[in-house]
Each structure stands twice: as structure tokens, then as C-alpha cells.
Nucleic acid binder design. Structure first.
Length: 780
DNA sequence: CAGTGAGCGAGCTTCCGCTTGACTT
């Protein structure tokens, strides 16, 4: 008898399941979606109830062909795609493509790849749920409409039109970054004075130790000083001691989002690096599936963890628990991310090692007992004053899960927190000798800028995007230039300290670095202008609650309560009106901002977006006699924050530094950054040089060095044909215009002797038969 | 590759979500 064919989404899963199911089944994977909307005309017939046109994308033709041929030879086809909206749709598309009847074809689901789960699933097959499929179609079609209607509006209305895009997810992601930036710009720090008293008391062994107690904060320096003065000659006594037990619980096992956050905080990984490493661990069978929003562990995994915990740490450390998702949007087609075998507490793979160990520890901790603490709060009376001081201490009584793992927190949630130390044993009425008392000025801080991972966290909270799209979404907004990932240097800020010691008050100032950021997401001017534009004309799409609201409607489609095309119609009609209105009435947006008057010419100076990015401009373009002067903004500068003085500075380029070999050397900033121009040739200037201050003496050696490097790289030039033979890191190659052509080994060895005819032949050959298909890559 | 910055408008771009590889100038 012919084997049955079971189709899953992931090839790694297919392998495992085939082993579990044995002889009767051949298990194949379809690699995710196998069909998508056609590109032309949105792939949707709006006039015909939004009838979609589906095609098999080029890169899926091979797998579809293979599945077709296997299906023909097989007994029965079983569909085992993921149990969520997308998975259901994939099953339906498979029916369509393989010519199966969705009403009769067996559809099974499981949340975990374990023998009992899969065997159980096989015993109770169902059929494709068309309501759920329709919910997916609605989701897909709405996203296509939003993306393909909105993007062209930007092409027409933004001064930097081409290569822009907008979408339900990416545009809101940019908005989040943009709004945080503006909050930070609008923020003014206020300072308060924190009172900290240092006392001495004996610890258990009788050794004197210092501990600190906090007083009420004071709004200004006068208040702080008055308070310190009032404490002169005071006597300090313990008035009250409270001891309370406290508990800390472990965090839930990893989902995609929490894994990305912890890997970012603890290991400094970007979201895409985390996913790349996790993918490798998954493919080598080390961890479960890495794109998931579920915190659930399978029975077998819990049992596995239990054995590890009890054998390594003892029974006392084990406390089984099943976690539930807080997130309503979770579709939970998979388990949480966990090691496949808990007995492996590490892996060989040197790149994935740290990530694996993080996953292992988190999974272990999630099944471990709470940590038990004892929190002590002591109130300290001041004899001369109504105010009290408070000393707090924390003692860990039982470490529990903290033995293996502690979750890091975001900067955002850490405001004003500090690690609690231990307190020496104190008794009520005990008199405490004051070592010193400080009133330290502390400034309030704006919220920090987002990291990739904290943006993912925010998106997840808003229900925007899915585990499989967090990393690609970040790539998209970076690629479009809406957002930049970079560091920011802090600025020095002075703060005041008043000190009461030996009954005398002294004042001093100290300084701290503030506002420094590392690897954070900053909106570009383009991102700000596009966000403002979209908010003005498409406030509903840009609303943080938009996705959550339409998700409710998708749920109604899935429940069979409404027709998917009725739902789409309700959305599309008003949306299309907005699109038409915007195209007709909206002004081109450039984010123009007045900076003031040029002191020399008396003309207006403005900052705005130009065709090639943010710039400053002196004079009006409506003035036909004299063209305005333009200058590009430097990286790190923004239309929103640049001032007149900084703008005038930018007009100092290009600078003529003087002569070398009887030709002028000039510096300027071009399309690819700062450069030196000399004798009709260009040499880019490294980051360590500032084009505004570099002088002839500094520029000349750079020029000479770069010139020789360029000469050495060049093996031969065929002037007339505009073909060059160059030496690159992968050996000699041919360059014709912008295109490069690879030489084979033999040709590389004879590169110096290659004649023009042979070079031309190689180019023709390679043009006719490209070595292998390279995924279409954009010119950069 | 090292300009440009207005408008006209050939012909192009674009979405989100599901899955892996292939590739370097």
C-alpha cells in the first residue's frame, strides 16, 4: 500500500515527525506559504467582492511541483500545518494546489512535537476550517490594500518619493520611535535633592559596618539645606523595625519576543542575530521552534525539567508550573522556546552557545521554586526634627530559581531602583552615630530611546506584528531610512552635593554624564516627516489600537459571524476616500522649519527635506534671479532640532585647503560621506576626520595613501571599453560600469595577460549564463 | 560614485506573514 503523505510547514519538524509516525507516513514540508496574492492590480478584484488572485511565487514553484508529484503517488494526503490562522490558510492553499477537496481532506493539529501529541492528533483528524481560512484571507487582503494604496501616496507626496513604503505594521513602528524622540526633545529635567544618611552599627560578628538610610526628597537646594541645618547636633534613634517575608517568582519560559529582549539585554544581540542563532539551534535539534508566542511547556518538557532540577539541586528547588499567556493576540500554535533535552545544559556550537545557555537557564528557572526574601525596614528618628529616615535591607533566605537565572530589566522600568543591601541587626531605641548626611541633587530623566528589542516588546504589547515578523519589520524601517540605529554621546552635567559632617555643612559640585545612548533607534527626518504626514491623513491606520480592533473583526470572521468581504468592504470604502482625498488635496510634505535670518545676506534660512535628504537652505527658491544655497545636514542633526548657528556652519563646505602637486585639494560631503577631491579624483574621508576642520597637512598624506591603494587595486584598465580588472578580497575580477564579473581560477592566474577580447568574451558568457541566481539585491 | 534641491512624468517601487537557504568585491 502506498504511504500517506503528511505535510507540515517546517522541514526540521518533518524529519522529527517522520520518525515518530514510522512506516505508514511520508512527511514533507511546504516551507510556509506556497501561494500569495498576485502583484499586479493589488491581486484583488475590488469591484468583484475583493476576489483575490493567488499565484505560486517563483521561489515556491519547486516545492509545489515536488509536493504535487508525491501527492499523486501517495495514498492519502494529511495536512498538518500550524494551528493558527496562517497555518489553516496554508492547508487550504495546499488543497487548492494539489487538487484536494478541503471538505474531505484530513487536517490535524498539534502544539508540540512529541510522540503522544502527534499520535493523539492522528487519531482525531478534522477538515479545513474555512471560516479561519477566510479570516486569514481578510488579514492578507487588508494588509495588501493598506500597503499598496498607501505607499504610492508617499511616492507622490513626499519630496523623497522613491523607495518609500507604508504599512499597517511598519508605519506604526516608526511612529513609536518618532514619538519617543519628540518626548525626549520636549523633556526638561527637573532636579530634586535626595537625602541619604550614613550610619555605623555593629554586624553579627561585632564588626562595625556602614549602612544608609533615606530621608524625604527636597524640591530645591534651600529646602535641602534647611533640612541639613536642622539636623545639626541631632541624635538618631531607631524608632521602629519591621521585618516582612517576600517572594520572587521566575519568569515564564521564552517566547520569540522575550528571548529577543533578554538576548539584547544580557548578550547585546540584535533581534536578527538572536533569530539567526536560534534558527541554527532549532535546525540542529537543540531547541524547539523559535517563532512562537506561547509560554506553554509540554508535559514531557516539564517532566524533563523536573528530573534535571531534582538531580542537580534537590527536590526543594522544584516547583512545577504551567504558564498562561497574558497576550490576547497570541495564537499559540507552538510551545515556548526551550531546549529539546534538558540534560544538555550547553551546546558545542560556539556562536549559539550563549543563547542556548540562556534558553536552558530560563526554562529550568521557570520550573523552580520561588526565591524567599526577608525585607527589613527600620525607621530612624531625628531628635531635632519631625522627619524620619528609612533604612531598608533585604536578605535572601532561599535562593530558589535565582540559583540559575535572573531576568534583566529594561532601562525603562528601572527608574530610581537600586539593589537592596543588607542591614546590620538593629534594635528599637538603639542610638545610631551619624557618619555623614548627604543631600545630592538628582535630575529626572526622559524615557530612554528604544532598542530593537524594546521596540519588539512594545509592538507585542500593542498586538502589532507576529513572532515571524518582528525581526523583518525592524530591517524594513532601517532599510527605508525611517529609523537609524546608532549611539549618542552624553553631555556633562554638574550637580550639587550638600554634606553634613561633624555638625558642619559643606557644599560641593560633581559632574555626571547624561543622555548617552548605545545602539538605540533614532527616527530620521524622513521618518518624522512621513509619520506626520500619515498621521494627518490616515489617523485611523496610524492609531495604536487599529490592529487590535481589526483583529477583533478577524476573530468574528473566524467565528463565522461575519463575511470576510463584508468586513473588508467596511474598511475599504472610507479608506479609499481618504486615499483619493489625500492624492487630490495634500501638499507635498517636506517638514519645513524656519531657522531665522542669515546675518550676512539677510535672507531666510530654513531646514527641510529635499530630494536627497534633510538639508538647510538660504533664500527662497521662488526668487528667480538668485538660486538658493543648499547644504546637507550632518548625521545626528535633525530638522527639528538644528538651530541657525549650526545651520550656518554647514554652509562652510566645500572648503579649498590649498594646493598639492599644483592642483587644488578640496573637501566636501557627498552622497557617500565626506571626501577629498584632487585632480578630478575623489577619496573618501574616514570617520576620524572632520571635513570642517581638516587642513592641508592632514589631508595630503591621506590623499597619497588612498591614491596608491587605488592604483594597487587596479590591475589593468581598458579605457575605451570602460572595463577594469581589479583586485578584490576574493581575488581578481572584472568591473564594467557598476557590474562585477567573477573570474575562474585559471583566468585569475592569467589576469595580467588577459586581452580585451577575452575579457569581453567572459563578460558575454557570464551575462548569458549567470553563475547562480542571486536574490534580487538593491543597488546601495 | 563624489551633482543635485523645480517639474514633467517614461517605468519602476510597495504590504504582512509563513518558511529556509544562497551569497559575498
Amino acid at each position: 500500500m502506498a504511504k500517506n503523505l503528511l505535510i507540515v510547514e517546517s522541514p526540521a519538524k518533518a524529519k522529527t515527525i517522520e520518525k515518530i509516525l514510522g512506516e505508514d507516513f511520508e512527511v514533507k514540508s511546504c516551507y510556509g506559504h506556497i501561494r500569495d496574492l498576485a502583484k499586479g492590480d493589488m491581486g484583488i478584484d475590488v469591484a468583484n467582492k475583493y476576489k483575490p488572485t493567488y499565484i505560486v511565487p517563483e521561489d515556491k514553484e519547486k516545492v509545489v511541483k515536488e509536493l504535487k508529484s508525491i501527492a499523486k503517488k501517495s495514498g492519502e494526503v494529511w495536512l498538518a500545518t500550524d494551528e493558527d490562522r496562517e497555518g489553516e490558510a496554508i492547508s487550504w492553499h495546499l488543497c487548492e494546489v494539489l487538487g484536494l477537496d478541503p471538505k474531505k481532506t484530513k487536517r490535524i493539529v498539534f502544539h508540540e512535537i512529541t510522540k503522544p501529541a502527534i499520535q493523539k492528533a492522528v487519531l482525531s483528524p478534522r477538515t479545513v476550517d474555512m471560516n479561519l481560512v477566510n479570516a486569514q484571507q481578510a488579514r492578507r487582503i487588508l494588509d495588501r490594500i493598506v500597503g499598496f494604496e498607501l505607499s504610492p501616496v508617499l511616492w507622490r507626496k513626499m519630496s523623497m518619493g522613491s523607495n518609500l513604503s507604508a504599512g499597517r505594521v511598519q508605519s506604526v513602528a516608526v511612529r513609536i520611535i518618532a514619538e519617543r524622540e519628540r518626548e525626549i526633545n520636549a523633556f526638561t529635567a527637573v532636579s530634586t535633592f535626595r537625602i541619604e544618611a550614613l550610619f555605623t552599627a555593629n554586624d553579627i560578628s561585632g564588626k562595625p559596618v556602614t549602612f544608609s538610610a533615606e530621608g524625604k526628597k527636597h524640591a530645591n537646594v534651600e529646602g535641602a539645606e534647611t533640612f541639613l541645618k536642622s539636623c545639626i547636633n541631632a541624635v538618631y534613634k531607631v524608632a521602629d523595625i519591621q521585618v516582612k517575608p517576600a517572594k520572587k517568582s521566575a519568569a515564564a519560559p521564552f517566547t520569540t519576543s522575550t528571548l529577543q529582549q533578554e538576548a539584547s539585554r544580557k548578550l547585546g544581540y540584535s533581534v536578527s542575530r538572536t533569530m539567526l542563532l536560534a534558527q541554527r539551534l532549532y535546525e540542529s535539534g537543540k531547541i524547539t521552534y523559535m517563532r512562537t508566542d506561547s509560554v506553554a511547556l509540554s508535559e514531557t518538557a516539564m517532566e524533563d525539567a523536573k528530573n534535571q532540577i531534582t538531580s542537580q539541586y534537590g527536590k526543594k528547588y522544584h516547583s512545577p508550573r504551567q504558564y498562561k499567556n497574558k497576550n490576547e493576540n497570541a495564537q499559540e500554535a507552538h510551545e515556548a522556546i526551550r531546549p529539546t533535552y534538558m540534560e544538555n545544559n550547553t551546546v558545542e556550537d560556539s556562536d549559539g552557545k550563549r543563547l542556548y545557555e540562556l534558553i536552558w537557564k530560563r526554562t529550568m528557572a521557570s520550573q523552580m521554586a520561588d526565591a524567599e526574601l526577608e525585607k527589613t525596614t527600620a525607621k530612624i528618628q531625628i531628635s531635632t526634627n519631625k522627619d524620619e529616615l528609612t533604612a531598608t535591607g533585604e536578605v535572601l533566605k532561599f535562593d530558589g530559581f535565582l540559583k540559575v537565572y535572573r531576568e534583566d530589566r529594561d532601562e525603562e522600568d528601572m527608574e530610581d531602583e537600586h539593589e537592596e543591601g543588607m542591614l546590620p541587626p538593629l534594635t528599637v531605641n538603639q542610638q545610631l552615630p551619624l557618619k555623614e548626611m548627604l543631600a545630592t541633587e538628582r535630575f529626572s530623566r526622559p524615557l530612554p530611546r528604544y532598542t530593537e528589542a524594546s521596540l519588539v516588546k512594545k509592538l507585542e504589547e500593542l498586538g502589532i506584528g507576529r513572532p515571524s515578523t518582528y525581526a523583518p519589520t525592524i530591517s524594513t524601517i532601517l532599510k527605508r531610512g525611517y529609523v537609524e540605529k546608532r549611539d549618542k554621546e552624553g553631555v556633562k552635567r554638574e550637580f550639587r552635593i550638600l554634606k553634613l559632617k561633624n555638625n558642619a555643612i559643606s557644599k560641593e559640585t560633581d559632574s555626571e554624564n547624561t543622555g548617552a545612548e548605545k545602539s538605540k533607534l533614532f527616527p530620521s527626518d524622513l521618518g518624522l516627516v512621513v509619520t506626520d504626514f500619515l498621521k494627518l491623513y490616515f489617523d485611523d491606520i496610524m492609531d495604536y489600537g487599529f490592529t487590535a480592533r481589526i483583529e477583533e473583526e478577524f476573530d468574528e470572521v473566524a467565528a463565522g459571524k461575519i463575511q470576510w468581504n463584508v468586513m473588508i468592504d467596511d474598511f475599504y470604502l472610507p479608506f479609499k476616500k481618504d486615499v483619493d482625498n489625500t492624492i487630490e488635496n495634500a501638499e507635498r510634505a517636506s517638514g519645513e522649519r524656519d531657522l531665522g535670518i542669515d546675518p550676512i545676506t539677510g535672507k531666510k534660512v530654513i531646514a527641510r527635506m529635499g530630494r536627497y535628504g534633510p538639508m538647510v537652505q538660504i533664500g527662497d527658491s521662488s526668487n528667480e534671479e538668485e538660486k538658493p544655497k543648499f547644504a546637507k545636514l550632518k548625521t545626528g542633526q535633525s530638522i527639528e532640532t538644528i538651530n541657525l548657528e549650526e545651520a550656518m556652519e554647514l554652509f562652510k563646505l566645500p572648503r579649498n585647503l590649498g594646493q598639492f602637486e599644483e592642483k587644488d585639494i578640496t573637501v566636501n560631503i557627498g552622497r557617500f560621506g565626506p571626501y577629498i577631491a584632487h585632480d578630478g579624483k575623489f577619496y573618501s574621508l574616514g570617520k576620524e576626520f572632520d571635513p570642517y576642520t581638516i587642513n592641508l597637512e592632514e589631508a595630503t598624506p591621506i590623499l597619497v595613501e588612498k591614491r596608491t591603494a587605488k592604483e594597487q587595486r587596479t590591475i589593468k584598465v581598458f579605457e575605451k571599453e570602460k572595463i577594469q580588472l581589479l583586485r578584490g578580497p576574493y581575488g581578481p575580477y572584472i568591473k564594467q560600469g557598476l557590474r562585477n564579473f567573477k573570474l575562474n581560477k585559471d583566468q585569475q592566474e592569467r589576469v595580467a595577460d588577459l586581452a580585451i577580447d577575452e575579457v569581453k568574451a567572459i563578460i558575454e558568457e557570464l551575462k548569458a549564463n549567470p553563475p547562480k541566481k542571486v536574490p534580487r539585491r538593491k543597488k546601495t
